[in-house]
Design a protein around this nucleic acid. Structure first.
Length: 388
DNA sequence: TCTGGGGTCCTAGGACCC
DNA sequence: TCTGGGGTCCTAGGACCC
């Protein structure tokens, strides 16, 4: 594949930064976002947000300001644990509508500068800058990497103008490296990595910095004595294939050498839509049957609403249960026709539930619809030819 | 005092068809 | 009775990501 210029843009402490725009007095203080969702009461002008120390419940941190992160708290951490580390940090409820609004704003601002965008969730995107960079430098004695840096700086400025928020950008020849690069100089960083920088800048990093190597694979690599990306790059590929399987092992080897030819995908259809909820207290399938049933039906109604609003129907209905020991089971069932109807979803999910042994308390219940199609279109109608 | 909610992708076995 | 080689769909679980 010929040389590309791929950017990864990551908003800095996104949810927390949006809240600081609304509550500038909190700037400079340790603040975490998490727990329950924002309610109308939270909008009161004299609203005082409580310190973490008094928190009870099952919430986790979705974002923390850099001042809060200094106490060792981070995304995904239980709020109870975070309260021990940073008792004086302020806890704000999450306001996803507002974050989505800012998400649209920053993406529009980027699109005005560079239109080839791949969505990676609410606060990050990949941007393919290749055409922009090449059209300006082709046939001229300009270093395309300097041009790429200028474009990235323009994007950061455009995002700040549109939202008042900062972001960090990495620009490299591919998505894998750009994802790593954007993290190297947060917040408000702009990091350029060329192929010749891999050994010096990427190899010293922990293997977990590779997007796709998570807690499990990271731990297994540790036991093999492989700590850094450089260690991984120098590992005999045969050992990786043996330990992690043909596909994953080969991918790891390529990733460690900074090789990745995935395209920036500017549009994709959703594969599934789901709703799930964790209860404040674990519920017993017999004793709390009525309550569970009510929550179950409500999830199906919300899910049906999501499907209708987004214009999808699906024919694989899935159920998810998490028990008090955190063990998770799923069941699914494919029905004859795609649906977006709450009652039909509820019925199919109810059938799934009958196939799960219920001998423990339940902490989470979820419903999912997959095999999506747009109603009106048949899902790739397969009319089997009779004689073939 | 553990561990949210919404997703994607991969693997693997079995059914079923040609 | 034993022996094939695909291909697709369905289901369950798990790793991983934001």
């Amino acid at each position: 594949m010929s040389l590309r210029f791929i950017a990864h843009l990551d908003m800095d402490a996104f949810y927390a930064s949006v809240e600081l725009l609304r509550y500038p007095a909190l700037r400079g203080l340790p603040v975490v976002i998490g727990g329950r969702r924002r309610t109308v009461q939270d909008a009161a002008p004299d609203k005082v947000f409580p310190p973490l120390r008094n928190y009870t419940g099952r919430g986790v941190i979705t974002t923390a300001t850099y001042e809060a992160r200094a106490f060792g708290v981070n995304s995904g951490m239980g709020l109870m644990k975070a309260a021990r580390l940073a008792p004086d940090a302020l806890l704000l409820p999450a306001d996803f509508d507002e974050y989505r609004r800012y998400s649209r704003l920053f993406k529009e601002a980027v699109r005005a500068v560079a239109p080839q965008i791949e969505d990676r969730g609410i606060d990050e995107i990949y941007v393919d800058l290749t055409d922009l960079v090449m059209s300006e430098t082709a046939g001229k004695a300009l270093d395309p990497w300097l041009r790429a840096r200028d474009v990235a700086a323009n994007i950061q400025q455009a995002v700040h103008d549109a939202t008042g928020l900062s972001c960090s950008i990495g620009v490299t020849p591919n998505k894998l490296l750009s994802k790593i690069a954007s993290e190297l100089d947060k917040p408000a960083g702009l990091t350029i990595l060329r192929e010749s920088d891999i050994v010096g800048r990427v190899w010293p990093l922990a293997v977990r910095k590779i997007n796709g190597i998570g807690p499990k694979a990271g731990a297994r690599l540790e036991t093999l004595g492989i700590h850094t990306i450089g260690d991984l790059a120098k590992t005999d590929p045969a050992l990786l294939l043996e330990t992690f399987g043909r596909s994953f092992g080969a991918w790891m080897h390529e990733a460690a050498h900074g090789r990745d030819d995935r395209a920036v995908v500017t549009y994709s259809e959703p594969k599934s839509i789901s709703r799930e909820t964790t209860f404040e207290n674990d519920l017993h399938p017999v004793t709390n049957r009525a309550q569970l049933s009510g929550i179950f039906t409500e999830l199906c109604i919300k899910l049906a609403g999501d499907l209708q609003r987004k214009g999808y129907a699906g024919k694989t209905i899935g159920l998810k249960l998490r028990f008090d020991n955190f063990k998770t089971v799923t069941r699914d069932q494919t029905i004859d026709e795609p649906t977006q109807d709450a009652a039909l979803i509820r019925r199919a999910a109810g059938e799934c539930l009958k196939r799960v042994p219920l001998d423990r308390r339940i902490r989470l219940l979820g419903v999912r619809v997959g095999a999506l199609s747009r109603p009106g279109e048949r899902p790739a109608a397969k009319t089997p030819a009779l004689f073939e």
